[in-house]
Simulated scan of single mutants.
Amino acid sequence: MSATVPDSMTWNARALQEIVSGEAQRPVLFTNARVLTADPLIGTLTGADVLLVGSVVVGVGPGIVTAAQDDGAIVVDCTGMTVVPAVVDTVALAGGRRHRSEYVATLTPGNAADLLVVPDALAGDVPEAVATLFTRPAEVRALVADGVPVVWAGQDVPGRGTAPAAGIPAAQDLTGSPRVGVWIDRGDFLHQELTADGRYDETRGGRPHAYQGRYWIDGDRIDYLDDLGFWAFGEFIGDELHHAGYIMKLR
């Protein structure tokens, strides 16, 4: 990600330019902020720091700035600002998670570096802060996804990623793909044939053509659109295909 920051992006413009310059990856520290972590152990912090390394939150709390500067971090001054998770786990916020380890959409060290920075006055709590992104987008100081700035000073960041085009994509030509073939689960109940023209055909419990439709592979993810109209997905993990509770291998 290498781009020139427009003059209109005045909030921490130098820091943003350093982030998007394309130089060797450096830690990024959001400092002097009120931090609503949404983590039940850490809670809300004032005058605190959030340290990102790549796509991961590696530190949260006061006093990180000294060590971060030692490590050559890019410093983003968030005086008067509140930092919240950009991805909100509403079940966790409502107290519906049993274990802290399940609070994945929080500003917790080890979690994804997804965060939102808005003025304190617009962040009475996490939902209010997130609502600012949709109701008052010009007030958003920063939106960061997996450690990469998406919005800064109320504007789209140059070189940011773009959402995929709406609509059903064209069929993939998967000729020669090692994932084309018949996948069979451990109990020999589900046989899922993936063909090179982007079609699948499932046999379930000996019932042929139980489900048929189109599929697309993106990295290790597979998306299905059944001819009945519903969507489903699976994931390739090593030499296994995990789908709807089934674990299959190519036969």
Results as ranks from 00 to 15, higher is better:
D218G: 02
P137K: 03
G124T: 12
D146N: 11
E102L: 15
T106A: 15
R186Q: 09
E102P: 14
V150F: 11
V182I: 12
T90Y: 14
G181K: 03
Q192W: 09
Q155M: 09
P178D: 01
A131K: 15
D114A: 14
A165I: 02
V88G: 08
D89H: 08
G205N: 15
G213S: 08
P164K: 07
R136W: 00
T106C: 15
P178C: 03
A123Q: 05
V117R: 00
T108V: 07
G110I: 12
D218W: 06
T175V: 12
R207C: 00
W183N: 09
A123S: 10
V91D: 04
D89Q: 03
L190F: 11
R199T: 02
D89S: 04
A142E: 08
A138F: 08
D197M: 13
A92L: 08
T108I: 06
W183S: 10
A171H: 11
D197K: 15
I184D: 05
A123T: 03
G176H: 07
V150I: 12
E102M: 14
D185Y: 05
P164A: 03
G96W: 01
A94V: 03
G198V: 01
L174K: 11
A138Q: 14
P137A: 00
A163P: 00
G167Q: 06
R204N: 07
V88I: 15
D218S: 09
V157S: 03
R160C: 08
P208W: 02
T108P: 15
D185M: 10
R160V: 11
V150L: 12
L143Q: 05
T162E: 00
A105S: 13
F189H: 13
A138W: 12
V157A: 08
R97S: 02
L107N: 06
V140N: 05
A121I: 12
P169K: 12
Y211P: 01
V180K: 04
Y103V: 15
G167S: 10
W183L: 11
A153E: 10
G124S: 08
L133I: 01
G161P: 06
Y103G: 13
D218T: 13
L122Y: 09
P109Y: 14
